[in-house]
Design a protein around this nucleic acid. Sequence first.
DNA 1: CGCGACTTTGAATAGCCTCAAGACATGTGG
DNA 2: CCACATGTCTTGAGGCTATTCAAAGTCGCG
Lengths: 224, 224
Amino acid sequence: MAAQATHECVQLVPIFQELAADQLDTIESIVQHHHYQPGETLFNADDPLDTLMIISGGQAKVYQLAANGREQLLYLLQTGDIDGEAALFETKHRTSYGEALVPTDVCSIRREDFQKLMQKYPSISINVLNVFGKRLTQLERQTTSTATESVEARLANYLTETAASLNEPAFKLPLKKKDLATFLGTTPETISRKLTRFEQAGLITQKPGKIIQINDADQLLLVE
Amino acid sequence: MAAQATHECVQLVPIFQELAADQLDTIESIVQHHHYQPGETLFNADDPLDTLMIISGGQAKVYQLAANGREQLLYLLQTGDIDGEAALFETKHRTSYGEALVPTDVCSIRREDFQKLMQKYPSISINVLNVFGKRLTQLERQTTSTATESVEARLANYLTETAASLNEPAFKLPLKKKDLATFLGTTPETISRKLTRFEQAGLITQKPGKIIQINDADQLLLVE
DNA sequence: CGCGACTTTGAATAGCCTCAAGACATGTGG
DNA sequence: CCACATGTCTTGAGGCTATTCAAAGTCGCG
């Protein structure tokens, strides 16, 4: 839609840090651009996994389906995030689903091309290792949290973390309650109830448009 | 304890695949050896993360503590597994605890040494990427499973998977029920009760010494 | 054999989910 | 610009699973 800047996606991505402009040109020339509408599918489980995806704009969710059909949100991809790295080297097919939440621009690099790039610019593989490491650490935390803490504690944590990462006490929930529920491993009804309780306790204030204002971050972190 | 073969740990590890014997010698010369008794600590959360650990023998558990103090088992390290990679490149401290379950041998490589190795032998970083990828995929599955499936389904899954990976319908649980419980995100009591139910339903048979025999793997997978 | 750790069993409770209905918002077509 | 349709959110009632606490039983090891 908008005119394409030369390095539109490539320069956004941490894994291509430290590369010179002309090297970015090379990379940009081999990527493919796609655009997705909200609700559109970026990929499905069992799809062949042969491309690395870069979110150059918008927002998408990555989720899995459990045996009983319930959805588990694993990641929320934002501008500059990448997906597909996890199995670029080994696994032959995807294990999760990707879906655009808002109008989203994606550029993708084919597996072989990416592997050539890694050989040519070794700093890329170090950067990819860093991305992996962060993701692992985050996922370990998420696993621990959903398995051992109450829904109330998880929600409280999510709110304070989101506020902290935005550096603002008031923010708009980036997800529908339904998606937030699958992220926290609960249901929309429970989220709704817990938020009401937080508000009654004076910990937060809810405003129209999914705006949440945190009034007492310290107390919120103490919720069990 | 036992006499040390030259490449005792190094040759066990997938990330050093494809290296020649003399290259393995080089690596072996820079690793440090440690031995741990059951219950001994390999590392704690908040420890500085500056070494890559290789399990050259034995078994260890890696777990996190939630805010409420409950334990979540993340990985069970077996001979040949590595730990510490997740943050070798960026994070400055550990986020999990490691503890030997049986007498365990570990060799470790200092961060700087390992980074030099990766520069010298680029195949190592590709191998590390593979290990990361597998771990991510496994952890994604675990997250989905604990968040969306019932304890019964998770336990049934665990049993069939363990049996499948050993290629035997009867096997000894590699963990105490207490640890298995934290792995599956539940309590020892619940595990006990569910196993009894499975047995009553004829799906498994329990024998002394934590031996479980699977009688009907198909039905077990259908448990909701 | 005896101690400590682990496991099993029981009873009561609590937290969360399900189902269902109504309120609200959002976006579409007339 | 309004009316309606669709999807999302809230609120309530009820039920169920899994946890908690407690105590007895079993295993393994010195």
